[in-house]
Design a protein around this nucleic acid. Structure first.
Lengths: 127, 127
DNA sequence: CAATCTCGCTTGCATTTTGCAAGTCATTTG
DNA sequence: CAAATGACTTGCAAAATGCAAGCGAGATTG
């Protein structure tokens, strides 16, 4: 499965960023990491039910591009935990903007887990 | 080709929004519309060179979900121009956040055309 | 201390989406 | 009226996705 991205489509920061995170799953993985999940299992347990092969692939990709890092799990055996790097964490505003748009324009959406940082909507009901 | 989206993966606003715009092309189309492009041709002429079948499909999708609308082109014959609706325009902060991240973390990216509205980075070089 | 269990993957397909080239069809221009 | 242009559609090969199953290493359990 693809881990390396093939080639840049242009020099546009939007296009290049989408080459990294522009698919149906990557930002959900990052969302999970932002809200504090860190193991493979925790992420596969999210309600969207990402397939294990897809998750393994996305973690590889994100690792390869330095958006996440992995550490040996403290208590368990040869397990790992995954964490956003600095640059990965800086995607939080992207997630926040998407969250805001979804809450405002898509009926029936709601945030189940808040990100640890600040939110900025003054008069939002569902948050 | 798919125009209707199959089913929501969860109630998460991020997941649901990605069901609409979470692919490699849709946000580029929206970027083009934000910077003032409005015809099929103008969008296919962008440097990323979206295939015509993909563009036709994405326009259909965006139309179907009310993010864009089309109007008969003023001068030409049976042509149309495409424009963001209110809700489509509200994706601008998402684009802005992605642009900022790309400029800051991906070498060699640069903005060729500015969006008409405000930018908010105080000490950004490339903008 | 062998048998089972759990976690974190990998592998093998079937299905879906993408990418590319070519074709169509209504204008529009020379 | 012949050729060109713009906006698509169609066909097909290639890639990505989804699903189920398998697998190895360390933890648990009897």
């Amino acid at each position: 499965m693809s881990t390396a991205l093939p080639k840049r489509r242009s020099v546009c920061p939007v296009a290049c960023t989408l080459d990294l995170i522009g698919d149906k799953w990557t930002l959900l993985v990052i969302r999970d990491l932002i809200v504090g999940k860190s193991t493979f299992k925790e992420i596969t347990s999210s309600p969207e039910r990402v397939a294990t092969n897809i998750l393994a692939d996305r973690l590889k990709r994100l690792l390869a591009h330095g958006l996440i890092e992995r550490r040996p799990a403290p208590d368990h055996g040869g397990r790992f935990t995954y964490h956003l790097t600095e640059s990965g964490q800086r995607l939080e505003p992207v997630l926040a903007a998407i969250t805001d748009w979804g809450l405002e324009h898509l009926e029936g959406t709601e945030v189940r887990v808040k990100p640890p940082a600040e939110s900025n909507h003054p008069t939002e009901t569902a948050r």
